[in-house]
Simulated assay, not measured.
Amino acid sequence: MLSRLPRTLPPTLRPILRLSRTSAPVVTTIQHAQIPNRPFHGTPQIRKGIFPDSADPPSPSPQTNNVAGAASHVTEASTLTESQYHEYAEHYLNVLQLEIEKAQEDGSDMEAEYSAGVLNVIVPSIGTYVLNKQPPNKQIWLSSPISGPKRYDWVVEGDRMHEKQESRSFVNGQWIYLRDGSNLTDLLNEELTLSMPRDVYSEEA
Score class of each variant (00 low, 15 high):
Leu188Met: 08
Arg21Glu: 03
Ala116Ile: 06
Asn189Pro: 00
Asp186Thr: 04
Phe170Tyr: 15
Val74His: 04
Asn94Phe: 00
Ala24Asp: 02
Pro15Thr: 09
Ser143Gly: 08
Pro25Met: 15
Val156Asn: 01
Asp109Leu: 13
Asn137His: 00
Pro36Gly: 01
Val95His: 12
Thr8Cys: 12
Phe170Trp: 15
Asn137Cys: 00
Tyr129Gly: 09
Lys102Asp: 07
Ser83Trp: 01
Asn66Thr: 15
Ser72Met: 11
Ser78Glu: 06
Ser20Gln: 12
Glu101Arg: 10
Gln84Met: 04
Thr43Pro: 12
Asp56Val: 05
Ser143Tyr: 00
Leu119Gly: 07
Glu105Ser: 11
Ala70Trp: 11
Tyr92Pro: 10
Asn65Pro: 14
Tyr114Ile: 15
Pro57Gln: 02
Leu96Arg: 12
Gly148Met: 02
Ile146Phe: 02
Asp106Thr: 12
Val74Ala: 03
Lys133Tyr: 03
Val123Asn: 13
Arg7Asn: 12
Pro36Asp: 04
Glu101Lys: 11
Val26Gln: 13
Tyr92Lys: 09
Ser167Trp: 08
Leu2Glu: 14
Tyr177Val: 09
Ala205Ser: 12
Pro11Arg: 14
Leu187Cys: 13
His32Ile: 08
Lys133Asn: 06
Leu19Val: 09
Ile50Asn: 00
Tyr152His: 13
Ser108Leu: 02
Arg160Lys: 11
Asn37Tyr: 09
Asn66Ser: 15
Ser144Lys: 15
Ser182Pro: 05
Gln31Asn: 13
Ser61Asp: 01
Pro25His: 14
Gly173Pro: 09
Gly42Leu: 06
Glu105Trp: 07
Tyr177Trp: 08
Val67His: 13
Leu80Met: 13
Gly69Ala: 13
Glu204Pro: 11
Asn94Gly: 01
Pro11Thr: 14
